[in-house]
């Protein structure tokens, strides 16, 4: 029975299934009515109207990787932040100062990243 704390997540799980079924069903419905005449030209990868040169999978610029790393750092921070945000009022100044220090360190990290020019795209 979907009740209580656990029950709420059962609802969410059921909705995930419902969403999946919805897409699958519509795609199946579409399959019934749509034409299907694959040709070599249609199945070619699109590259502005000419035959593609090389393959589409290539090692890309590591720049994205650094942004991802930065993101992880700050997202973890956010995870810490939310529980703290609810209770810091009761914990008082000490908790607040701790968070100031924590955010200060992160801000320093961000500043360092800026100084190191890793946020420049080129």
């Amino acid at each position: 029975m979907p009740e209580g704390y656990f029950g709420q997540y059962v609802t969410i799980g059921i909705f995930a299934i419902v969403g999946t079924v919805l897409v699958a069903a519509t795609l199946q419905l579409s399959r019934l009515v749509r034409p299907n005449h694959p040709t070599t030209a249609k199945l070619t990868t699109y590259e502005s109207g000419i035959d593609p040169i090389g393959h589409g999978w290539s090692q890309s610029n590591v720049r994205y990787y650094i942004f991802a790393l930065l993101f992880v750092v700050f997202d973890v921070e956010a995870v810490f932040l939310f529980p703290w945000a609810i209770v810091f009022e009761e914990l008082g100044t000490a908790a607040f100062v701790e968070m100031v220090i924590f955010i200060g360190i992160l801000a320093l990290a961000l500043l360092y990243a800026v100084k190191k020019r890793v946020l420049e795209w080129l």
Partner: peptide, 8 residues
């Protein structure tokens, strides 16, 4: 990183 030939 690999260079990619892109057709525009």
């Amino acid at each position: 990183t690999e260079q990619m030939v892109l057709n525009v």
